[in-house]
Design a protein around this nucleic acid. Structure first.
Ligand code: FES
Ligand code: FES
Lengths: 145, 145
DNA sequence: ATAATAAAAGACAATTTTATCTTTTATTAT
DNA sequence: ATAATAAAAGATAAAATTGTCTTTTATTAT
């Protein structure tokens, strides 16, 4: 569905939401180990999330690291996709046409749009901290390998 | 969702299903113009579809080109994904975990699986010629640009 | 047989995505 | 002030995807 990068972004954000607070920040080393992603590459991705949409925050230096504000934790998961520039993917034509629209629908459109609506709804209604607390409950998981 | 290649594969196949019969084969030039895809690249992709799963057939020489048997036209659209090796995509974890399973579900799993089931069902139940005839009815479209 | 046609096959190139490594900058604690 | 820490920034590289171009092979019609 999404790119590897966006997968890392989603999982890293959920991890930070779980463990990172303003007075207990999480280092990139911890994060990349926890979610099973390449360290430096993940660092780049987190920079996007701090700059573009301020989903996560970071500080340098000792005791520095990544964390999220309570406000940001209440954002829908979709906000992460937006920060990664992959939000549009949810709206795309499943057959790869330039755009998915009612005006020039592809042969899959009428049936796919119902699914698409649910998909967008899912990313729109689920919040980052809902998912994060589900992980902490121990019933769901997030490590790659 | 799918790669560009798979998009071309889907659209090319639907075009061939519409226009190509054993005594009126369709040339790669015609196909790539019709669906708005790079000619030579599309040719490669069609080779996969002829070799791997025999979804489409082809002959060389004058009056040669691509066509489909009636049997193949009754295949589900999913068969095209399979031939392209992207069938697994439908089953993948939306957060990018190594596998999507009930045993180690990600935090999106329980809600996503309902959508996923519909998605797989859609590709499984829609047949190539159903979509192709919808295109011929003129109500739906398939050109990239 | 020969020429013409069209896909198959192969070589290569451009682009995008993913990944690694090094240097710099900001912050903290001593 | 200085050393230590950790992210930011930058440079570079590997891998995968997408795209182009040329040559070969198979088929048809003359
Ligand atoms: S136009 Fe193809 S899914 Fe909407
Ligand atoms: S495990 Fe993530 S969607 Fe099933």
């Amino acid at each position: 569905m999404f790119s590897k990068s966006t997968g890392y972004a989603l999982r890293a954000t959920l991890y930070i939401a779980q463990k990172g607070t303003e007075d207990h920040k999480i280092g990139i080393d911890d994060i990349s180990k926890a979610i099973g992603s390449p360290r430096s590459f993940t660092a780049k991705i987190l920079q996007l999330l701090t700059k573009n949409n301020k989903i996560i925050h970071s500080t340098t230096g000792p005791h520095g690291g990544f964390y999220m504000t309570e406000k940001a934790k209440n954002l829908p998961v979709r906000a992460i996709l937006q920060a990664m520039g992959e939000d549009g993917l949810l709206d795309r034509c499943i057959l790869g046409l330039a755009e998915c629209s009612e005006k020039r629908p592809c042969p899959m459109h009428s049936k796919y749009k119902i699914i698409k609506t649910q998909l967008i709804g899912l990313f729109e209604t689920e919040t980052i901290n809902q998912l994060a607390s589900d992980i902490q409950s121990g019933k769901v998981f997030m490590k790659l390998k």
